[in-house]
Design a protein around this nucleic acid. Structure first.
Ligand SMILES: [Zn+2]
Ligand SMILES: [Zn+2]
Length: 797
DNA sequence: GCCAACGTTGGC
DNA sequence: GCCAACGTTGGC
């Protein structure tokens, strides 16, 4: 961890410092700066972005774009002259290195790290800096806010820039590098770039018709750019920022899609005619400026095999172009503009990263996905923007605490943190899971669940006597009544919502946590979608294993887990953990997680899909029906299956419920189930078919025993699921049973409650009912063996 | 690879 | 400090 960080920092730092040093002489003296100087300036600008942001969005807003750039200008230095190249290369290389090092850490931690890093460089650089610290400058600016002129001065002169650069070594630069690196990783990592391209293309604001033929996802417009622009002020309509944003995106997409040469990118950059398009430079490009096409292409090619580096180069080139313009024009406004644009780019990059991550994880192509993604982006935007517009607000995200059940909007802890904690760095969470490994390295600041080592963690060996010891917490407190609904707190925070999950957890922007788990570290992941039956329940059932374990129910508090009935069904995290387990009462259970993940979007719709009874679903009859109904759509199904399989999960979704068939099967299952005598098992009837979403989560949890080894079964499942889905999709058109869900819950509860008392030899089955046993109560903790489950499954199949 | 056990977090 | 329950460990 530390090592990597340090090294990365070092490398980047050193590179910069050297660059700075070199730059000084030339820059100071000459009005017309050679390319090198320009490059340096660019770097400085990047570095300064952060500071500038702080200063004020207002300024940006006020700024009107005097001169936009032409694409030609953009490409400028990067590739062009060797000298400039060397400079550039150093610059770029720095990025690369940083990227390489940093890959993993995109998360908040990284931000923190960055910030921490920033200081040292200053010290180093100080000698170089003649007079005042960049910090001062920054602060002044920030505080001053200044008039444009003030800003202008600061920015305009190279010296100033350099100083600021030196002093601040602003986090932005690093951040950008990190982002880029991340993106690069992502892209490279993807088996198919197509996905990336899709994302990218999707990201491209719809407002501007993307020129790129290759990429085509039409996403609805991405609000980001607009917001960024708007953010500043109405004045902003001046397209620049938008154009800027757009341009990078377009470039990006192009690169990805076609691996175009820079020229193409440049062209894209120039923008389409849309109002947002990048304004063209009134001024002729700087003489030194090389032709965009050539330069860009060279630079990109040289830099790396990946397209992404190209992107970086492009950006740099653009920046250079901007600088030239700025110098020629020498107007503060332009600079401001530039900054704003850079900022926008930055934000955009962040989004891209997040999006890419999401896509990666999902790998689902459903239209819903796209929607969700967009949604997420939108959500994220405000956060990101916030920093820009107002340096900092208390994290709005806190609302999580207040989240009522109904409140679906979940802030992502990540975002919240990022916004709140680090200066500006709205570091979007990158992919938690993948990054996690390395990110962990860097995560120093984050809480460490470092095990004390005091005590051995796992379950005590069977022979050990520890069991009696129990946890430190009061063993026998039974303060509360067996069921206190009121007493129970509902989780206040939820990091992952189905939709949000994509971001926060999976894609979410940052999952801070290194583990694949959804949540960030700081806040424990509590899953609370607010919609699912589990979330709606206030009371512990008192019967499930975990309830029994609770001290209030006389338990030893060893397991310390949430009541199974109260678990959020959307909680993928837990489910994953539990995958493979089989339902006690029921035969196998399709792992829910897949459902949750895939259908998370749907969930947002409020049509959570659950896997009612796997058995029922898999019954031949149902299949036949489904087949009949959905036969037409095999192709689509296949895709779905593939996806599901990829996920490794099957969701049992019962589209058509034949009560008869289901009931029959259930009965059979139960009969078969060796482990649990029926009486012990409480049966619940789940809702029917498709819509019902039910409560099955509980099932999943409870029924963990045996989902394993069922190659055949799995296939069946997959098929069934696919079919079911299709059916569901159709069903959505004809809502079959969506109403059931809530009802079902009640039913279940009732039944469960009843079950306590009753002897259930025969499970109650309602309609489609699936028998699920949430309550193991009666059974002391006898775990059902998987064998039983497998057997059941086999039978069922 | 599963899952009981338990350290630990975070809201109150 | 209490409490719920999350995240991780290590026995199996
Ligand atoms: Zn319970
Ligand atoms: Zn829920």
């Amino acid at each position: 961890m530390g090592n990597k960080k340090a090294s990365s920092n070092k490398s980047s730092r050193s590179a910069r410092s050297t660059a700075v040093v070199n730059a000084l002489p030339s820059a100071e003296s000459d009005e017309h700066k050679d390319e090198n100087a320009v490059n340096r300036e660019i770097a400085a600008l990047l570095l300064n972005l952060h500071a500038s942001r702080e200063k004020g969005v207002d300024n940006y807003a006020s700024v009107k774009e005097t001169s936009p750039q032409s694409g030609d200008d953009i490409a400028i230095d990067l590739s062009k002259s060797n000298q400039s190249k060397s400079q550039c290369s150093s610059f770029v290389s720095t990025e690369d290195r940083v990227v390489g090092r940093c890959h993993p850490p995109t998360s908040v931690h990284s931000t923190t790290i960055i910030t921490s890093v920033a200081h040292p460089p200053m010290a180093e650089t100080k000698p170089v800096m003649s007079s005042h610290d960049g910090t001062l400058d920054l602060t002044k600016r920030a505080s001053g806010d200044l008039e444009p002129p003030a800003l202008f001065q600061g920015l305009s002169s190279l010296n100033d820039l350099e100083r600021s650069q030196v002093s601040s070594m602003s986090s932005n630069y690093l951040l950008q590098n990190l982002l880029m690196g991340k993106m690069q990783q992502i892209v490279s990592g993807k088996a198919t770039q197509a996905d990336a391209s899709k994302l990218l293309s999707s990201l491209v604001p719809s407002t501007s018709p993307s020129s790129q033929p290759g990429c085509k996802l039409s996403f609805p417009t991405k609000p980001l750019p607009a917001k960024a622009l708007s953010l500043n002020s109405p004045i902003n309509e001046a397209k620049p920022p938008a154009s800027v944003l757009k341009s990078p995106l377009s470039i990006f997409s192009t690169t990805n899609c076609n691996s175009h040469s820079a020229a193409a990118a440049a062209a894209a950059f120039n923008g389409t005619g849309s109002p947002l398009t990048l304004p063209v430079l009134p001024t002729s490009p700087h003489p030194n400026v090389p032709r965009p096409g050539n330069q860009a292409s060279q630079g990109s090619e040289n830099k790396s095999a990946n397209n992404i580096p190209l992107l970086c180069g492009q950006i740099v080139a653009q920046l250079n172009g901007l600088l030239f313009l700025v110098h020629s024009l020498n107007s503060p406004q332009i600079e401001l503009n530039l900054e704003s644009q850079l900022t926008a780019i930055y934000s955009h990059l962040q989004e891209l990263v997040g999006t890419v991550e999401q896509v990666k994880q999902r790998q689902t192509e459903e239209p819903q996905d796209s929607k969700s993604i967009i949604k997420n982006e939108e959500e994220t935007l405000p956060d990101q923007q916030m920093p820009y517009s107002h340096t900092r607000k208390s994290s709005p995200q806190r609302h999580l605490n207040g989240v009522g059940k109904e409140d679906k909007n979940l802030a992502f802890s990540n975002n919240a943190r990022s916004s709140s904690n680090v200066i500006n760095v709205p570091f979007p969470d990158v992919n938690p899971t993948k990054l996690s490994e390395e990110s962990e390295h860097q995560v120093e600041s984050s809480t460490n669940p470092s095990p004390n080592g005091k005590r051995r963690r796992g379950r005590p060996p069977k022979h050990s006597n520890l069991d009696g010891a129990g946890s430190g917490s009061g063993l026998n407190k039974r303060s509360r009544g067996s069921q206190d609904g009121t007493g129970e707190r509902e989780p206040k925070m939820q990091h992952s919502s189905p939709s949000s999950e994509a971001q926060s957890s999976s894609c979410g922007f940052s999952k801070v946590s290194g583990n694949g788990s959804i949540g960030g570290k700081g806040i424990r992941n509590r899953v609370f979608c607010g919609e699912c039956p589990g979330c709606l329940k206030n009371d512990d059932c008192g019967r499930c294993r975990y309830c029994k374990d609770k001290t209030k129910f006389g338990g030893q508090n060893r397991l310390r887990q949430k009541c199974l009935h109260r678990r959020c069904q959307m909680d993928t995290h837990r489910r994953r953990a539990s995958q493979g387990t089989v339902n006690i009462g029921v035969g196998k259970k399709a792992p829910v997680s897949a459902m949750s993940e895939q259908h998370s979007r749907s969930f947002s719709k409020r049509t959570p899909r659950r896997s009612p009874s796997p058995n029922a679903i898999y019954s031949g009859v149902d299949l036949a029906r489904l087949a009949a109904t959905a036969a037409a759509e095999l192709a689509s199904q296949n895709q779905i299956l593939s996806q599901q399989e990829a996920n490794g999960q099957g969701n049992g979704i019962s589209t058509n419920s034949d009560e008869n068939t289901n009931s029959v099967e259930q009965s059979t299952q139960e009969r078969d189930s060796p482990d649990h005598p029926p009486h012990n098992v409480s049966v619940k009837a789940t809702t029917n078919a498709n819509g019902g979403g039910g409560l099955s989560d509980e099932e999943g949890e409870d029924s963990r025993l045996g989902g394993r080894s069922q190659s055949r079964i799995d296939k069946w499942k997959a098929k069934h699921e696919a079919m079911l889905r299709l059916a569901e999709d159709k069903a959505t058109a004809n809502p079959v049973n969506e109403n059931d869900a809530p009802v079902d819950e009640h039913v279940e509860e009732d039944q469960t409650e009843k079950s306590d008392d009753k002897l259930p030899t025969i499970p109650d089955i309602e309609a489609n009912g699936v028998c699920i046993n949430l309550d193991e109560d009666l059974l002391p903790s006898k775990p059902l063996t998987r064998h039983g489950a497998s057997v059941q499954q086999a039978l069922s199949v």
